[in-house]
Design a binder for these strands. Structure first.
Lengths: 76, 76
DNA sequence: CGTGTAAGGAATTCTGACACG
DNA sequence: CGTGTAAGGAATTCTGACACG
């Protein structure tokens, strides 16, 4: 579940989030997709799971900078 | 492992096969990727596994039409 | 802060065909 | 038969920015 194999389009469908949101969470250092040679992001199923958790927390009123310590996340 | 989430570029990397080979096996009805609205193919991890098996069999001298009965494969 | 959008470019994927054998 | 390739188009993704609040 850690293999980075999905492009952002599929992640969008699986999470229901916008590309903007997905990229923003990365900008905030909450998610770490891999990159193809061409620069396209690649996510794992674990990433999809994490994106859902992030969005849930934000809906609960937390801020991205507070989520960085939300849970230890194994680095790529 | 049945979720169709990978585009052909990643499948190429995971299997070491060319796009031509991957598409040809589909043309021969040995593999059944899903499609995005735009027409792009989407594969599952099971598909990747199957592609490897197909290629192995071909290297062993079998022909694509002989592989259709190779093993029951659940349809999409 | 978190997210939407229009903008232009670059990388990806698609199909149908010609080629070899 | 199984696979390579050049061709042109269409869909996808990328970055940086302006916007709101």
């Amino acid at each position: 579940m850690e293999e980075k194999v999905m492009n952002i389009g599929i992640v969008k469908e699986l999470t229901g989030l916008s590309e903007r949101q997905i990229r923003y969470y990365e900008e905030r250092k909450l998610i770490f997709p891999a990159r193809t040679r061409g620069g396209a992001r690649r996510y794992s199923f674990d990433d999809v799971k994490r994106l859902r958790e992030i969005h849930e927390k934000l809906k609960d009123g937390f801020h991205t900078f507070e989520l960085k310590t939300m849970r230890p996340f194994k680095s790529v």
